[in-house]
Design a protein around this nucleic acid. Structure first.
Lengths: 227, 227
DNA sequence: TCAAAAGTGTTGACTCTACACCCATGT
DNA sequence: ACATGGGTGTAGAGTCAACACTTTTGA
């Protein structure tokens, strides 16, 4: 057996859409290394703790969110020997999609936590600690791809939402405007994407809009098309 | 810091298409645990060794293949606390796509190595050691999805191949027949999928077929469509 | 009455599928 | 000649983007 001195961690890319923009939850590191720098939330896996359990625990600690029921998926594992100055640390990155929620709370290892616009971060590879820019890049690309062929955009929405609220999610994540009329038709005609609940709302102004819940289909046929 | 007693390994799902069927390279374990059982090839990450380097090293050791240039990608990481009876072992699974090649050689920890038809393995969750059935399931699904939107099917082919050889790859991986005429048109009209080299072959019988090399496009527009 | 957003209809361009048909070779 | 697989043409169905137009509310 080869049990080496090695740290195993998870890092979280927690995405939301606020004010029409894709945002990532970052913490400012309170301890070395990279003290004072912005980084993805994350932490070490405890003995006998499953990887996804670690990720859900970290998510709750960093955001105060009840981790039950929200979307969490593994993105990739990063294990370059020199990625952490403390020694060999291998990190499993998870992607979480959350609806727009109250401001995050600072945790134990973090001086502060805040939402940061994803495009700004992606444009500057040096703003994040460790190899977190690469992790973020991979996770955002995963999220963009997932919106095409899965109904996961609804994970960014509250339980009941309108079609145009769903459309703003796509526009924020893909960074391009979509035709509201064609979008409406496509979403409502794709089996299992959204289910009407029979009520309406005028919270977006104008004519009352139908409210929908997330449907049950695991994949979209046909997929949504990006630019 | 939390450096725990923990093993870090990579497991390899090495796929090829032989005799019109998708096949996986398995080894028969020569040591405990699961001695004598069939398993995916893999091994522990060495100190200061990158994860992908480990995967390429294992691939060469198990198959005798020159690992340079062939397709290798990370699938997922498996870390359930009880997945290995020896203790906590976290394994990063990699997917490799290789052309049909000479028979594999047995390695150090393996009594023997052989190709096994993937559908048989997928149908029986108990034939493989550890959680390797789940790893195999995830990897094969990844391969199937990749064929849709990437030109990776060519990674199963020799450097120069005909369109119908490429078609047999799709048919083997997807498990469904495709129309040879429409397939030909679609492949040759998708920019960057395949490049004609200007020579022909009659090795498949009938009228001479154009030979192609893999193109440079990273993704296919439009994608190939599964059933 | 007007602005704003929801939702429907329509049209022309494009794409896909199924299959008829011709082509170039080996035997 | 004929079997075998390579490759092109084409008609009908379906899909998609663009945009005109109607509907229903709040102000």
């Amino acid at each position: 057996m080869d049990f080496q001195p090695l740290g195993l961690a998870t890092d979280l890319v927690i995405l939301t859409v606020r004010d029409g923009a894709l945002q990532v939850l970052l913490i400012r590191r309170g301890i070395a290394p990279y003290k004072g720098r912005w980084a993805l939330p994350g932490g070490f896996v405890r003995p006998a703790e499953d990887l996804e359990t670690t990720a859900r625990r970290e998510l709750t600690e960093e955001t105060g969110l009840a981790a039950a029921g929200l979307h969490l998926e593994q993105v990739a594992t990063y294990g370059a020997p020199d990625r952490d100055p403390r020694g060999r640390v291998v990190s499993v990155a998870y992607l979480a999609l959350v609806p727009d929620l109250p401001a995050p709370v600072a945790g134990t290892d973090a001086e502060s936590a805040r939402w940061v616009a994803a495009p700004d971060l992606l444009a500057d590879p040096a703003r994040l600690a460790f190899d977190h820019h690469r992790i973020l890049t991979d996770a955002v690309e995963r999220a963009r791809a997932k919106l095409e062929y899965s109904p996961l955009a609804a994970a960014f929405c509250p339980p009941e939402f309108t079609i145009s609220e769903l459309r703003t999610i796509y526009e924020a994540v893909w960074g391009a405007p979509l035709d509201p009329r064609n979008f409406h038709r496509k979403v409502t005609k794709t089996p299992g994407f959204v289910d009407p609940i029979g009520a309406t709302t005028t919270r977006d102004g104008g004519r009352p809009a139908q409210l929908f819940r997330r449907g049950t289909a695991p994949t979209l046929h046909p997929p949504m098309t990006r630019g």
